[in-house]
């Protein structure tokens, strides 16, 4: 496998008369946040590896509006939504995959009533389909026998009832999958949802991410896995706060590292 990523821009691809099978919605974190960019690249590596025909919007993509809407700014949310829908419908996009559960939820559940109807996947669902179809092989390799605990992102798990896709991928790594007491529909939020990512927490006894990381570390994990850029940030910060040295990886990163695809 080569080091260069193959990342077509949708406008260019259409100009060449080609149409991708799926649009990869990178999201703001995936585009600009250092930790999330690693996830973006890992996912692209897997798409390249599996030979998937995809494209990104590039500079034509804009925030879905999720944090604005959850901050109460319906006006700004709908502005973003309508602009994005105009672009997506203009390109006749049918299928979208994204690595961000917040983008996933908004595109899937909130765009339809504003005229944006697409088939939307979280990357864990998309990768699991590739695995099932035999287009992607996951190697245990480096992670064989390692203890992995999965933190459910609220917007993927409880809010969109997707619990097994990320777990099926982690199980394919030959790792030992462990669960926290509060998992799946009872999963505890990392503290970033509802636009909390962008503000300081209100005063209290402790920060939510610290509470969550204590629970995760109690399972004695070698790796904490998750499937959301905000969760990744919050959990990573919580691990640093605890003074421990446990890597926090997105599912896509875990698969890439395990198979030594990088």
């Amino acid at each position: 496998m080569t080091d260069t990523l193959h990342v077509p821009i949708l406008a260019d691809m259409l100009a060449e008369g080609k149409k991708p099978d799926v649009l990869f919605w990178v999201g703001c974190a995936g585009s600009f946040d250092d930790r999330a960019k690693k996830v973006t690249k890992a996912f692209v590596k897997l798409l390249n590896e599996a030979g998937i025909s995809f494209a990104i919007l590039g500079s034509e993509e804009g925030c879905t509006g999720d944090p604005a809407r959850r901050s109460g700014n319906e006006f700004l949310f709908q502005m973003q939504a309508m602009q994005n829908i105009e672009v997506l419908n203009g390109y006749d996009v049918q299928r979208i995959v994204t690595t961000c559960p917040h983008c996933f939820n908004t595109l899937k559940n909130e765009y339809p009533e504003l005229g944006g109807k697409y088939e939307v996947f979280h990357h864990s669902q998309f990768l699991r389909e590739l695995l099932k179809a035999g287009k992607l092989t996951i190697q245990g390799g480096a992670f064989k026998g390692k203890r992995i605990v999965f933190h459910d992102p609220c917007y993927l798990g409880r809010i969109n009832q997707t619990y097994e896709a990320p777990r099926d991928l982690l199980k394919a790594l030959d790792a030992e999958l462990h669960e926290m007491g509060r998992c799946k529909k009872n999963g505890l939020c990392c503290g970033a949802g509802g636009a909390q990512m962008f503000k300081e927490p209100e005063k209290g006894d402790k920060d939510i991410n610290v509470e969550r990381v204590e629970e995760a570390l109690a399972t004695k994990p070698d790796i904490i896995a998750t499937g959301c850029p905000f969760c990744k940030t919050m959990i990573s910060d919580g691990v640093s706060h605890s003074g421990k040295d446990v890597p926090v990886l997105d599912i896509a990163e875990a698969i890439v590292q395990a198979g030594d695809l990088s």
Partner: peptide, 9 residues
């Protein structure tokens, strides 16, 4: 109101 994470728990 501002302390909510909209996690739906």
């Amino acid at each position: 109101l501002w302390a909510c994470t909209s996690c739906n728990a």
